[in-house]
Write a protein that binds this DNA or RNA. Sequence first.
DNA 1: GCCACTACTATGTTATACTAAATACCAGTA
DNA 2: TACTGGTATTTAGTATAACATAGTAGTGGC
Lengths: 114, 114
Amino acid sequence: MENNTEMMKGVLEGCVLEIISRGETYGYEITQQLRELGFADVVEGTVYTITMRLERNNLVDINKKPSTKGPPRKFYTLNAEGVEHLENFWEKWEFISNKINELKMKTNGKGEEI
Amino acid sequence: MENNTEMMKGVLEGCVLEIISRGETYGYEITQQLRELGFADVVEGTVYTITMRLERNNLVDINKKPSTKGPPRKFYTLNAEGVEHLENFWEKWEFISNKINELKMKTNGKGEEI
DNA sequence: GCCACTACTATGTTATACTAAATACCAGTA
DNA sequence: TACTGGTATTTAGTATAACATAGTAGTGGC
């Protein structure tokens, strides 16, 4: 699929939060998980700007650990605020995706259902 | 619901295309329809920037008609390219919203389903 | 005349994802 | 040793889209 970047705005950060919520992880691994999940062309730079933002907004705790495969990793876990933020994200997602699916389902005329 | 504007990026234009596809309509009416659909805080300025963009990208035909209630209205209909663009939008939406819902449904661990 | 509603336009701001490049650590190998 | 490739983070700059806000204009009712 071609260029989805605009449609990813506002949701990619939520996806990263969700991934972190499942267990301590770090930027490089998050990128790979996103790719496995089907967001094939998400690149590292994008994920790092998000994790940096999460740091700046105090939604994560940080834990630096050495790696046997390269430079040290910065592991993230969600703090209380992060968890709240994530719940909030899913509520927003539910709300908006429902609205859009409603719009999609409705037929012609001026609003009658199928 | 508070601030969803980032999450609307990339989808609002698609919603406007969808509304136009259901019959000739104009900016002010599109705004009201979006509000009725639940996108309560979409303002006129936003819709007009979208319709201007649709014009610029040649996705719509334009038909100016007088109104008994105010200044003339610019009625839009989708042209062939606009229809194609709309179909494309819904494909992207299906793709991305499915991915996100998959992510939402999966539990902890490293990828096992519930 | 004044106000409310209808209707469009234009300017500047902000947030977010992307591009691209630089840096760094380690292991294997020629 | 030097080189390559995979792992891992940082940062500077760009593009895009939605938003806020203000301005312009036409109509009808008080």
